[in-house]
Simulated scan of single mutants.
Amino acid sequence: MLIGIVSDTHDDLAAVEAAVSLFEREGVDAVVHCGDFVAPFSATPFDADFAFHAVRGNNDGEWAVESTVEEFGEYHGEAAALSFGDGDGASDAVDVAVTHGTSEVLVDALVDCGDYDYVLHGHTHAHGVEARGGTVRVNPGGLPIPVDGADDAFHVATLDTAASGVEAVTHHVLDE
């Protein structure tokens, strides 16, 4: 199973459309948005040919984001615990925690608790992947912003559940 991961799209429709196009070209089965759509209109392009999951980001000030996402996907509020794969003990089944990432303490606790194969988060606008214990922390990145440590280009990620560990994660740079 191939999972697309995106975060911090901040109403940039060109970036959202570039991400959706990449995910469709890659043939993802599901997409997880780690928050910060900002307004409902920037969620609607994710109504595509894949399952869609989203959590709230600190800049998602319009509560209509939830009802917009619920029209075509699943909105999980502040955090989600998801399972992807066959679910019958298949080797490609993975358990995933998703949060926006505003709290580093929460992200670290989700990684260190050992309950998840992957912890997905955004917020920093800096892509990264880190294995710690039996869990892999994945930040897909986000739009470039003028903050130290942020990416200078828009990044998203894919997670191939047929692989494992950090090798299962691929970061993609997108032109907006």
Score class of each variant (00 low, 15 high):
Pro45Tyr: 02
Phe46Glu: 05
Phe46Ala: 10
Asp47Lys: 00
Asp47Cys: 02
Ala48His: 10
Asp49Thr: 14
Phe50Gln: 02
Phe50Thr: 03
Ala51Pro: 09
Ala51Gln: 09
Phe52Ala: 11
Ala54Gln: 12
Ala54Cys: 09
Ala54Trp: 08
Val55Phe: 01
Val55Tyr: 13
Arg56Trp: 14
Gly57Phe: 13
Gly57Pro: 03
Gly57Gln: 07
Asn58Pro: 04
Asn58Cys: 13
Asn58Met: 00
Asn59Ser: 06
Asn59Ile: 00
Asp60Thr: 01
Asp60His: 02
Asp60Tyr: 11
Gly61Ile: 09
Gly61Tyr: 05
Gly61Cys: 08
Glu62Ile: 14
Trp63Arg: 10
Trp63Asp: 12
Ala64Trp: 12
Ala64Asp: 15
Glu66Ile: 00
Glu66Lys: 14
Ser67His: 05
Val69Gln: 05
Val69Gly: 01
Val69Leu: 06
Glu70Gln: 14
Glu71Lys: 06
Glu71Met: 02
Glu71Ala: 15
Phe72Glu: 08
Phe72Trp: 14
Phe72Ile: 12
Gly73Phe: 04
Tyr75Ala: 06
Tyr75His: 06
His76Met: 01
Glu78Tyr: 07
Ala79His: 10
Ala80Met: 05
Ala81Phe: 15
Ser83Pro: 08
Ser83His: 00
Phe84Arg: 01
Phe84Ile: 05
Gly85Tyr: 03
Asp86Met: 00
Gly87Gln: 01
Asp88Met: 03
Gly89Phe: 03
Ala90Glu: 12
Ser91Tyr: 07
Asp92Thr: 06
Ala93His: 14
Ala93Phe: 13
Asp95Ser: 15
Asp95Lys: 07
Val96Ala: 01
Val96Asn: 08
Val98Gly: 08
Thr99Phe: 01
Thr99Asp: 10
His100Met: 11
Gly101Met: 09
Thr102Phe: 09
Glu104Gly: 15
Glu104Val: 14
Leu106Thr: 05
Leu106His: 00
Ala109Trp: 13
Leu110Asp: 04
Asp112Ser: 00
Cys113Leu: 06
Cys113Tyr: 02
Cys113Gln: 03
Asp115Phe: 10
Tyr116His: 11
Asp117His: 07
Tyr118Pro: 07
Leu120Asn: 04
His121Gln: 05
His121Leu: 12
Gly122Val: 07
Gly122Trp: 09
Gly122Asn: 10
Thr124Ser: 14
Thr124Met: 03
His125Val: 12
His125Trp: 08
Ala126Asn: 05
His127Cys: 06
His127Thr: 11
Gly128Phe: 10
Val129Thr: 13
Glu130Gly: 12
Ala131Trp: 04
Ala131Gly: 09
Arg132Ile: 03
Gly133Asn: 09
Val136Ser: 03
Arg137Phe: 00
Val138Tyr: 04
Val138Ser: 00
Val138Ala: 11
Asn139His: 02
Pro140Met: 14
Pro140Arg: 12
Pro140Ile: 00
Ile145Met: 15
Pro146His: 13
Asp148Phe: 14
Gly149Gln: 05
Ala150Arg: 09
Ala150His: 02
Asp151Cys: 11
Asp152Gly: 09
Asp152Phe: 08
Asp152Val: 14
Asp152Trp: 04
Asp152Arg: 04
Phe154Gly: 04
Phe154Gln: 05
Phe154Met: 01
Phe154Asp: 11
Val156Asn: 04
Thr158Leu: 09
